[in-house]
Amino acid sequence: MRHPENIPTSASFSRDHIQTVGNIFVKDARIECRSVDVFYGEKHAIQDVSLDVGRNEVIALIGPSGCGKSTFLRCLNRMNDTIPGCRVSGEIKLDGQDIYAEGLDVVPLRAQVGMVFQKPNPFPKSIFENVAYGPRIHGLASNKLELEEIVEKSLRRAGLWEEVKDYLRHPGTGLSGGQQQRLCIARTIAVNPEVILMDEPCSALDPIATAKIEQLMDDLREHYTIAIVTHSMQQAARVSQRTAYFHLGKLIEVGETAQIFTDPRHQLTEDYITGRFG
């Protein structure tokens, strides 16, 4: 799996090279994935992916449509469980604990590993209720005042507080797309997770809203580990420290973001980054 570090030129691995290029390991990893395979019925969606996610880092998962990056992301908090016919094999450990262990309850896992989806999906309830829902079901607040504090803190962190503080009783679905997505982020961080998974969180947003969310990710990195799937290479370059390139269900290359975008070592990565396809 490990490759010699002394390769001098870029794109030194041909398109036929199927093993992951780059260092998949990080020191003191938060999430360790080893030989993960995912099947949708007969379809082999993810093939033998091994990858570590470090603490307080933003890792970007990039690749052409259908390459399995979203599927991989959804493995990390077992959201794939909801898809009929989906089967996951291999090992995924969160802080050394196998999350696919038999008898493991997904509820605490998902409280630990929050998720923000591609399309903003606020509950059809008030803004306050949207954010308060998670803390309420997990019992994070012992009284109303604490709950209000959590809601305010989460909305502040998501950079939404100033815009909505007078409209907390209004429906969350009445906000604009960018505000809705930030509401969803506030809802996720209200549970105080350790890891946040973001599945193309800005694909439906305009550049201004996108910039706000990117800024937000930078701030959140202090407290959380973030894995983000994105189609925008500029975004990956802006927000992430490490980048993983997926292609047809395989993890092709992993590395420091700066290195991936300036000096890709696998021919497929270079093709994608230079826009030859994808």
């Binding site: 908090n77 605490p108 989806f117 999906n121 606020p122 079901i137 996720t188 549970v191």
Partner: peptide, 15 residues
């Protein structure tokens, strides 16, 4: 009911 609502709830750890 749109699946996104289910995902939203499951995603923050609702049973």
């Amino acid at each position: 009911v749109p699946p996104s609502i289910r995902e939203a709830a499951l995603g923050i750890g609702a049973s």
